[in-house]
């Protein structure tokens, strides 16, 4: 079956396309079939021209103020209109929070299917296969589908971003009627985490994971949560690392127990938390069993500090395991980083 491949992007605040969007375009370009570009945003011409040389046969857009914000109702209406106009059988889109919210609903409207969190696409002649993880990154599947249209949302970092010259394009504007029902929701802005929680740095080079061991009784039989909090926050300050934590540690904070004061559920990595992407990860006071490490699937270099030489990290989960007391090690690490 000849596929019509629609690359679907949305513009950012300044009208540009984000890196992950260009990565999805890179993936779309690698597939055989007729290629169409679809864009949504307040202003789309500039963005369309920036990828004008990508080889698409058509450039479609839904443009206007109601589409400047990330809102399910308007995003679905726009994406649905573009998909229909393009006659798309395969839709490739970046896994942004905006598309992740709306495109599964679009698949439902079109009688198709959506697969999210795609980490790889392979095209073998007429058959298309995608890779994605199940059970919170604990097993990886390769799958294909007969249903069309098939919407695929691609994770970041899976493909090289498309690079090419700006070129003029003929942009086909598709009208979407804005009924009152589409704008019952108003997007009022963005909110950063509370200042004392500003330890999540998605773009940081290093992920620092604090395990529950920090709040346990230490070898003198007492807990040293205050000292742990001080050591960790100092390290985050001097290293500019992002902070991750385990569910149990975060849960404790909701129970009024002695825990690290700057932790919230946003810091949670793994089972019910995020699967962040950082070049390096340093685990402290965490045992490193499989369920602890599922959130580490996309951390490239991994080191751990733990008192147990036989902990999970020692068995192929980390590149280096330091068998030592994290309190002592991190105190020295902080001192050395401060000296630099």
């Amino acid at each position: 079956m000849a596929e019509t491949i629609l690359f679907l992007g949305h513009t950012e605040a300044a009208g540009e396309l984000s890196r992950i969007t260009l990565e999805a375009l890179g993936a779309a370009k690698s597939l055989a079939g007729e290629r169409v570009v679809g864009l949504v945003g307040r202003e789309t011409l500039h963005a369309a021209e920036s990828i004008g040389s990508c080889g698409a046969s058509r450039f479609l857009a839904v443009t206007g103020e109601p589409f400047s914000v990330s809102r399910y109702a308007t995003d679905c209406a726009a994406a649905e209109a573009i998909c229909r106009a393009a006659g798309a059988t395969i839709v490739i889109a970046p896994h942004t929070s905006r598309w992740a919210r709306s495109l599964p609903g679009v698949a439902q409207r079109l009688g198709g299917r959506a697969d999210t969190h795609i980490t790889g696409i392979t095209s073998n002649g007429s058959s298309l296969q995608v890779a994605r993880w199940f059970y919170r990154q604990r097993m990886e599947a390769l799958l294909g589908r007969a249903q069309r249209p098939w919407i695929l949302l691609l994770e970041s970092g899976c493909r090289a971003a498309w690079q090419g010259d700006t070129a003029p394009v003929t942009l086909e504007n598709i009208e979407v009627e804005i009924t009152p029902a589409l704008v019952r929701t108003t997007v009022t802005g963005k909110q950063a985490p509370r200042s004392e929680l500003q330890t999540i740095r998605p773009d940081a080079a290093l992920l620092f994971v604090a395990g529950a061991g920090w709040t346990k009784k230490q070898k003198d039989g007492a807990m040293h949560v205050g000292q742990a909090a001080e050591l960790i926050s100092r390290f985050l300050e001097v290293s500019q690392a992002s902070l991750g934590s385990s569910k149990s540690l975060v849960d404790l904070s909701g129970e009024g127990h002695a825990v690290l004061p700057f932790l919230s559920h946003l810091n949670q990595v793994g089972q019910t938390g995020s699967t962040p992407r950082h070049p390096k990860g340093l685990a402290t006071c965490c045992h490193g069993e499989e369920p602890h490490v599922v959130g580490w699937r996309f951390i490239q270099e991994r080191r751990a500090v733990n008192l147990d030489p036989n902990c999970g990290w020692a068995r192929g989960k980390a590149d280096v395991l330091y068998v030592a007391d994290a309190f002592e090690v991190m105190a020295r690490v902080n001192a050395l980083l401060e000296e630099r």
Partner: peptide, 16 residues
């Protein structure tokens, strides 16, 4: 409503 979005931030929306 506060929704998680990119960059460790929340998007704030109001629905009638």
């Amino acid at each position: 409503i506060l929704e998680r979005i990119e960059g460790g931030q929340h998007q704030v929306s109001v629905c009638s």
